[in-house]
Amino acid sequence: MTSTFEKLAEVYKALADKSRLHMLALLALEELCVCELVAIFDMSQPAISQHLRKLKQAGLVKERKTAQWVYYSLDNSKFSLLQNIVDTLPDVENEIELLKSKGLRVQCGLTPQF
């Protein structure tokens, strides 16, 4: 039972940061590469990676590797309340559209998937 409380505490700690909540809102819409999140947040790659690491450790996001690029998406399979939390977050679809309009959608050497 202690491990359950520890795991839940890790989830709530991961959710207690506005940048990570923002990332979850984006990842609920589309799978994104680290470089795309760097462009959206105007943060360094190490800062974005650190946030994603915490979200992944909490079981809130999953990753998919393609060559040297890593793509992240929401993982609501381990924490059933996650979708309810994401549903309460502001709509950020315009940020994905802005990324596309700037030609930064999938700048990791792959063909853009519009």
Score class of each variant (00 low, 15 high):
residue 8 L to M: 04
residue 8 L to S: 10
residue 8 L to I: 08
residue 9 A to L: 10
residue 9 A to M: 11
residue 10 E to I: 00
residue 10 E to P: 01
residue 11 V to I: 04
residue 11 V to M: 10
residue 12 Y to W: 03
residue 12 Y to N: 12
residue 13 K to L: 15
residue 13 K to R: 15
residue 14 A to L: 05
residue 14 A to V: 01
residue 15 L to H: 10
residue 15 L to G: 11
residue 15 L to M: 13
residue 15 L to A: 06
residue 16 A to Y: 09
residue 16 A to P: 14
residue 16 A to D: 11
residue 17 D to Q: 03
residue 17 D to M: 05
residue 17 D to R: 05
residue 17 D to N: 09
residue 17 D to F: 14
residue 18 K to H: 06
residue 19 S to D: 14
residue 19 S to G: 01
residue 20 R to A: 04
residue 20 R to D: 02
residue 21 L to I: 03
residue 22 H to K: 13
residue 23 M to R: 08
residue 23 M to D: 03
residue 23 M to P: 02
residue 24 L to A: 07
residue 24 L to Q: 11
residue 25 A to E: 03
residue 25 A to Q: 01
residue 25 A to S: 15
residue 25 A to H: 10
residue 25 A to T: 00
residue 26 L to M: 10
residue 26 L to T: 00
residue 26 L to I: 04
residue 26 L to V: 00
residue 26 L to S: 00
residue 27 L to D: 05
residue 27 L to I: 01
residue 27 L to C: 10
residue 27 L to A: 07
residue 28 A to H: 14
residue 28 A to I: 00
residue 29 L to G: 07
residue 29 L to T: 06
residue 30 E to Y: 09
residue 31 E to A: 07
residue 31 E to I: 02
residue 31 E to M: 10
residue 31 E to N: 03
residue 31 E to T: 06
residue 31 E to S: 15
residue 32 L to I: 00
residue 32 L to W: 04
residue 33 C to F: 03
residue 33 C to I: 06
residue 33 C to A: 15
residue 33 C to V: 00
residue 34 V to A: 08
residue 34 V to M: 06
residue 34 V to E: 05
residue 34 V to G: 06
residue 34 V to N: 12
residue 34 V to I: 06
residue 35 C to T: 15
residue 35 C to R: 11
residue 36 E to I: 04
residue 36 E to V: 00
residue 36 E to R: 00
residue 37 L to M: 10
residue 38 V to E: 04
residue 38 V to W: 10
residue 38 V to R: 13
residue 38 V to K: 07
residue 39 A to N: 10
residue 39 A to R: 11
residue 39 A to I: 01
residue 39 A to H: 12
residue 39 A to D: 15
residue 40 I to W: 11
residue 40 I to Y: 01
residue 40 I to A: 01
residue 40 I to L: 08
residue 41 F to H: 13
residue 41 F to R: 15
residue 41 F to Y: 12
residue 41 F to A: 13
residue 41 F to P: 08
residue 42 D to Y: 14
residue 42 D to A: 12
residue 42 D to F: 09
residue 42 D to L: 14
residue 42 D to K: 14
residue 43 M to V: 09
residue 43 M to H: 11
residue 43 M to G: 07
residue 43 M to D: 06
residue 44 S to W: 03
residue 44 S to C: 12
residue 45 Q to L: 03
residue 45 Q to H: 13
residue 45 Q to Y: 02
residue 46 P to L: 06
residue 46 P to Q: 08
residue 46 P to W: 04
residue 47 A to S: 11
residue 47 A to D: 07
residue 48 I to V: 14
residue 48 I to N: 10
residue 48 I to T: 00
residue 48 I to G: 08
residue 48 I to F: 00
residue 49 S to Q: 10
residue 49 S to Y: 15
residue 50 Q to G: 15
residue 51 H to M: 10
residue 51 H to Q: 12
residue 51 H to T: 02
residue 52 L to H: 04
residue 52 L to M: 06
residue 54 K to Q: 12
residue 54 K to W: 02
residue 54 K to S: 10
residue 54 K to C: 07
residue 54 K to V: 09
residue 54 K to H: 07
residue 54 K to D: 02
residue 55 L to F: 01
